[in-house]
Write a protein that binds this DNA or RNA. Structure first.
Lengths: 140, 140
DNA sequence: CAGTATCCAACTAGATACTG
DNA sequence: CAGTATCTAGTTGGATACTG
């Protein structure tokens, strides 16, 4: 059985189990990984532990609020660990947990897909938008 | 080199290329795949072509509006194909394109991860919420 | 430094009435 | 049947002032 056929079979099964059975778990993970900042933070922390302000500086355009909220959610899921050093001034470091690293692989697969197909995607979108534009302009 | 080490290396590289270079493409794909309905529609269509009303009935809780918007975006990206049969009453079928099927694999990987780890996730969240609750209630 | 609290703007998504 | 148009509620996310 080919890899593709196997993948199809499993996806079909997952469609049934995930969609019919408990779509909320898949949804919640997609919400986590699909929101605006989680993946970027995981990506940054994957390269080593970082502090709050470091992440604030490094993640392009994130606000304090969203950094706090996103880190809390990642921590809640056990994907990121928060380590407090009782010093003055206070120091807090965030790091990816071993559990979090298991998520890297599937995320990696998705990132690879986007990297491999971004040209196709761009072309598709451009073609679609152009066709729509011509439609709207009623030009041949 | 182990699979994990290899994955780490590639992810690190992707961090640099995707995050530093063009985060928007990865973002746009995550937006597509991570939004409320795309994955569910891809899942349904993966089992075979379907018509608008069929999807409306089968996807749990989707509105006409969101079905239209989501299908348009999937079509725009070339992941789904819209086939019009010029009949009366009108018939339109949607099907996953070969390009769309290439996306199944990484999505499959993510779905598998959620399936494999949903118990851990649930436990993590429960533990975190309980700890937060105890904190808030000031109980030991 | 590492957040929290508050306010506000933008976007997302649902309900529903209408059209070819 | 296969949508579009419109209105509205709810959510997400940014700016910023404040706290331990």
């Amino acid at each position: 059985m080919s890899h593709q056929a196997e993948a199809d079979r499993v996806l079909r099964s997952l469609n049934r189990t995930c969609l019919d059975h408990d779509p909320d778990v898949l949804r919640s993970v997609l919400d986590r990984v699909g929101d605006k900042w989680s993946l970027i933070l995981i990506g940054l922390l994957d390269m080593g532990p970082m502090r709050f302000t470091g992440l604030l500086r490094t993640a392009p355009g994130i606000s304090r609020r969203m950094l706090t909220l996103t880190l809390r959610n990642l921590e809640r899921d056990g994907l990121v660990k928060r380590v407090i050093y009782p010093e003055v001034p206070p120091r807090v470091e965030y790091e990816v947990t071993p559990f979090g690293r298991t998520l890297s692989e599937p995320v990696l697969a998705l990132a690879r897909w986007t990297a491999d197909h971004q040209d196709t995607l761009r072309a598709n979108r451009r073609a679609f938008d152009q066709a729509a534009g011509l439609d709207a302009d009623d030009l041949g």
